[in-house]
């Protein structure tokens, strides 16, 4: 019992520390005060300011757009890649597994500048596609790494059985393998979204200047403002709420799955 309390309080402590800065922003999103630390009455004005601020809204939209686009591309390419890698011959498998590790282990800034050099060498004006490629490079290994374990759990005979029963390879793939690895794919997809939303360095290096995301926007304004601009506090609240709604949904999904 004591152990349980101890364990739980340790967990809570870490969580409290982790969420403290976010909580601070949320609390101060309900006042107009420009400085954190001085409370100047309750107000929803920052929310109005945030929604009226076109730059923030555009950045938010762009962030979501690139997160979804890059995650979809990564998930498709990565899932097929993972299946391909899994059924490759041993040597090829080792090579492919090896290169999958590169973007994970590589320093993000090195990945970013290497892509910059590539695009500049090719003489490309940076655009959405370059940014997309940057994010896909960043996220794709995590799809492969999420799908791989599910492939290992797969019964190798099922695919053969499907073929023996007359399915074409692609039907066998779609009806047998894909459904089995789907949880891994989903988990990879969510990991992609998370990483893409969080990213600053790759975005900063591979975007066109006219395409600003939340991270580049925030970096720009903190560089010139010092403290965070007040309307970003409201934005933090908004994202946190979305985040918890998502968490609850996942919770329900899992609870349902357990029941069934």
């Amino acid at each position: 019992m004591v152990k349980k309390i101890l364990a739980r309080s340790y967990l809570s402590l870490i969580l409290i520390i982790m969420y403290a800065p976010i909580a601070l922003l949320i609390v101060y999103s309900f006042t107009e005060s420009t400085n954190i630390g001085t409370w100047s009455g309750f107000s929803f004005d920052l929310y109005r300011q945030m929604f009226a601020n076109e730059e923030i809204m555009e950045a938010l939209l762009n962030t979501i757009l690139i997160a979804i686009a890059s995650s979809v591309v990564s998930t498709i390419l990565g899932t097929l890649g993972a299946i391909g890698i899994f059924y490759s011959r041993r040597r090829m498998k080792r090579v492919l597994n090896g290169i999958t590790q590169i973007p994970v282990l590589n320093a993000e800034i090195v990945t970013a500048i290497s892509l910059t050099i590539l695009f500049v060498t090719l003489g490309i004006t940076f655009n959405f596609i370059t940014l997309l490629i940057g994010h896909v490079v960043l996220t794709i290994p995590f799809v492969v790494l999420s799908v791989m374990p599910k492939l290992q759990q797969l019964d190798p005979n099922m695919y053969e059985a499907a073929l023996d029963l007359g399915a074409t390879p692609s039907i066998a793939l779609r009806k047998v393998i894909i459904p089995e690895v789907l949880p891994g794919v989903l988990s990879g997809f969510l990991l992609c979204i998370t990483l893409s939303l969080d990213d600053y360095i790759i975005t900063a290096f591979t975007r066109n200047n006219s395409f600003s995301t939340l991270s580049t926007y925030v970096y720009g304004v903190t560089a010139k403002r010092g403290a965070l601009p007040p309307s970003l506090r409201a934005l933090t609240t908004l994202i946190t709420i979305l985040m918890f709604i998502f968490l609850l949904l996942t919770n329900f999904r899992k609870a349902k799955a357990v029941k069934n």
Partner: peptide, 9 residues
Amino acid sequence: NTLKTGKTE
């Protein structure tokens, strides 16, 4: 940097 590399015009 932006102009030299032609990242954005």
